[in-house]
Write a protein that binds this DNA or RNA. Sequence first.
RNA 1: GGGCCUGUAGCUCAACGGUCAGAGCAGAGCGCUCAUAACGCUUUGGUUGGGGGUUCGAAUCCCUCCAGGCCUACCA
Length: 572
Amino acid sequence: MARTLITSAIPYINGIKHLGNLVGSQLPADLHARFLRLSGHEVMFICATDEHGTPAELAALEAGEPVAQYCARMHKVQRELAKGFRLSFDYFGRSSSARNRDLTQHFAGRLADNGHLYEVTEQQIYSRHEQRFLPDRYVTGECPNCGYERARGDQCENCTKQLDPSDLINPRSQISGSSDLEMRRTKHLYLRQSKFIDRLDSWIDSQSDWPTLTVSIAKKWLHDGGGLQDRGITRDLVWGVPVQRGRQSWPGMEDKVFYVWFDAPIEYIAATAEWADANDRPDADWLRWWKTDEGAKDVRYVQFMGKDNVPFHTLSFPVTIMGSGEQWKLVDFIKSFNFLNYEGGQFSTSQKRGIFMDQALDTLPSDYWRWWLLSHAPEYSDSEFTWSSFVDGVNSDLANVLGNFISRVCRFCVRRFGSRVPEQGNWTDIEHDFTNRIQAHINDLASLMYAMEVRKSAQQLRKTWALGNEYIQLTAPWAAIRSDQERAATIISYALNLASIFSTISSPFIPDASARLRRSLHLENTPSWPTSIPDALRQLQPGAELSDPGVLFAKLTEKQCDQWKREFAGTR
RNA sequence: GGGCCUGUAGCUCAACGGUCAGAGCAGAGCGCUCAUAACGCUUUGGUUGGGGGUUCGAAUCCCUCCAGGCCUACCA
């Protein structure tokens, strides 16, 4: 059996994610995981919260909570929202877990043993008032270049000049406003990424099928300027994985933690271990997904992420893996996404602009969002959410094409055949023709789904749904039943079987509606992807009960659309 | 500043060197009345951002200009 390991970029802990975040990794990853499971693949689908780093500390501070407590609370919130959107993770872990601590320290130890780490003593801004070191961007002051007063320590937003915090005139802490700052010496560990340029280069070159976006970002980092630079992997923070060399302490590195981008991707591995722990399974059960020398040779590993995450997944994390000298699985395919915009601007977490996951679920069931977002996924360029487009898409695709097909067939059956699947007689040329067309459509759909062509898959699925209405229109059972009861029975049975097929092939996009439809057809909710459509069209037993599923998707009104436009116009 | 990406019908997007540049939505006409006033059929919309070049042939390759987006390594 084919095995696929799927990871979605892990969402940061400091708040509720917006729909742009959702469509950029977790949702398409879920689509792929659901499709592969339907197709009989063994799937391990992993996600987690990314909990370390300065923004988490600051968010906790703002919330007036200890950071560990804040993260635990926000993890639960994000986990519940993921459930609300029906994201079918096998495990939703935490980068603050003991498993990730141990693995992160293990990797650091291996890298050190293999000579890939070195110590650098450098000057860093320290705030005496807050008793903490400040990351460059948390220092603000006057730009020496253009005089802009709120320039950040890493770059001036006004003139875009790259800065060093020591360049700033009248520097102060962005966090407290305090100007009681000084330069302090501090020692950090650097990862020799530069040593891996050639290896990374040939590895990336060997990936002939990666998306342009993924490859071009990786290549730019690899070769621009002086080429890939070494990167500091430790920070002077409290909240994070304590710096250790495996199980050993690291002299001179006490009170330091690993950089969040060092431990975050390791959490993909750690979360799989957390999955094993949570299910009382031995280590071998998670290692067989990750170690090629412990059973993972046949695993295909696919990552989903937004384009901002690409450098860490194509370069830094692979260096961690390669540098360990151990047989950890490298990624086989990276599916990266552009950004989703909102009503002519950007979705923004910091400005709280757009629609956030909790608000979305309070407004409409998850299937509505899943369908629109996936059918408009920003695959090849940024794409745009507007309420009008959302309402049009939902009404046209879900209510009119799919929902109405289900409704007209089921209700006809309930009224004319007493809520039982009628006998399916011989097919005419019409049925033979439609069966061929349906088969071709579903074959194409399967190819697109396997290739992770998200928008095209949605388009193809919609085309397949439309065949249902075309069939009903052409065969006109309401006319047939007046003169030929048996013919009408055949038509309705054929259409009901088609509805059953739809419930299966649509389930990766709209799992709830699919399950509801299966309940009305009294089918078990463990479908598998149909390979022989002629057989699938004779699945339902004549005489089997069925019930009216009701309205699967309510049409959205212009009034609602206007209201939402107003409601979500400002910031939350 | 440098790099990458995008610009195609009113809207959202396909086509990535080769039959009249396609699809959905919106618009128009016809049909149907089982159904969520839904559905089906037909149909109107494009000098492919501007200009130049390469080629037998360009939306597609090259140059240039214009517009938008993203990244630029201590936010994640």
